[in-house]
Amino acid sequence: MTDFFVLPGTRVPLGDSGGLGTSPIPGRTAPYSNPELDDGGVVQVVDAEWARRAGVARELAAELQGAQIRLDMAALKNHYGSGVREGDEFYQKAKAFVSSYSATVREYIEALQSLATRCDNAENALSSTDSNSARDLQI
């Protein structure tokens, strides 16, 4: 799916390619010109957005890693009565829960790191395609 970015504060309605209609056509993904806004139907893709998205994903992954470390520390010691059957049983259940939850957090961290890499790749691909297209136009 293609994302269309426009300058903040502007609206680019979706509709027929001739600009004759004013209501969106279901399934249409390309904006058309809006004379009221004098935008000419220009779609602006902001290269820096991909870098920003990658940075946000890395930042969230780092925050989750910090939380995961603290979470793992919670299961290191039996705080519920070592040597007492009920305390030991509760500790084993709590430890199993923390271990399971920690594995889930680890999956989210990996997903965020993967997202950051994909955003970097998208930025690089967009920049490369843009440069290649510009070079082709200059020849």
Rank of each mutant, 00 (worst) to 15 (best):
V84Q: 12
A122M: 10
V6L: 13
Y108T: 00
N34K: 06
P35K: 09
G19I: 02
L76N: 12
G18H: 13
G40Y: 07
R118A: 06
Q68I: 09
S114P: 04
S23M: 05
S99R: 10
S99F: 08
L37W: 13
A62Q: 11
E36H: 11
E49N: 15
D88R: 01
F90I: 06
G41D: 01
V42W: 03
V45Q: 10
A94I: 00
P13V: 02
N124E: 10
R85I: 12
V45L: 12
G21K: 05
L76P: 01
V6G: 14
A61R: 01
E63I: 07
T117D: 07
A103H: 06
A125T: 13
D39Q: 07
E59V: 08
G19T: 04
V45Y: 02
G15K: 07
P13Y: 03
G40R: 12
A75P: 03
E123M: 09
D72R: 09
L71D: 04
E49G: 06
V46W: 11
P24T: 11
S23C: 00
V6M: 14
A67R: 04
A62V: 04
L14C: 04
P13Q: 03
R70S: 09
K77Q: 15
A48D: 15
W50Y: 15
S100P: 01
V42P: 00
L112N: 03
V56K: 07
I109G: 03
E63R: 15
L71I: 05
E123I: 02
D16R: 09
P35N: 08
A111V: 04
V84G: 05
G9K: 11
A57Q: 01
Y80S: 06
A111Q: 05
D72S: 11
R118P: 00
R11K: 15
D88I: 02
K95S: 13
L64G: 01
P31A: 14
A57T: 01
A61D: 02
L112P: 00
A51S: 10
L76G: 10
E107G: 13
E107T: 13
R28V: 15
P26D: 13
A54H: 07
P35R: 07
V6Y: 12
H79C: 09
L7K: 15
H79F: 13
D120S: 02
V105H: 01
V43C: 09
S102K: 00
E36K: 12
A48S: 15
R58Q: 14
P8G: 04
R118V: 01
N34E: 12
D120I: 00
P24N: 11
V105S: 01
P8S: 08
G19Y: 02
E86G: 02
Y108K: 08
G15V: 10
G87R: 03
S100F: 11
A116E: 05
S100G: 10
R58I: 05
T104P: 00
D72K: 07
D88G: 01
L7W: 14
R52Q: 09
A67W: 01
V98W: 00
R106W: 02
Y91K: 06
L14W: 08
G41I: 00
D72H: 03
E49V: 11
F97E: 08
S82N: 15
A116S: 13
P26F: 07
Q44E: 13
E110Y: 04
A54R: 05
Q65H: 05
A94Q: 06
V84I: 15
P31N: 12
Y101C: 01
L37K: 13
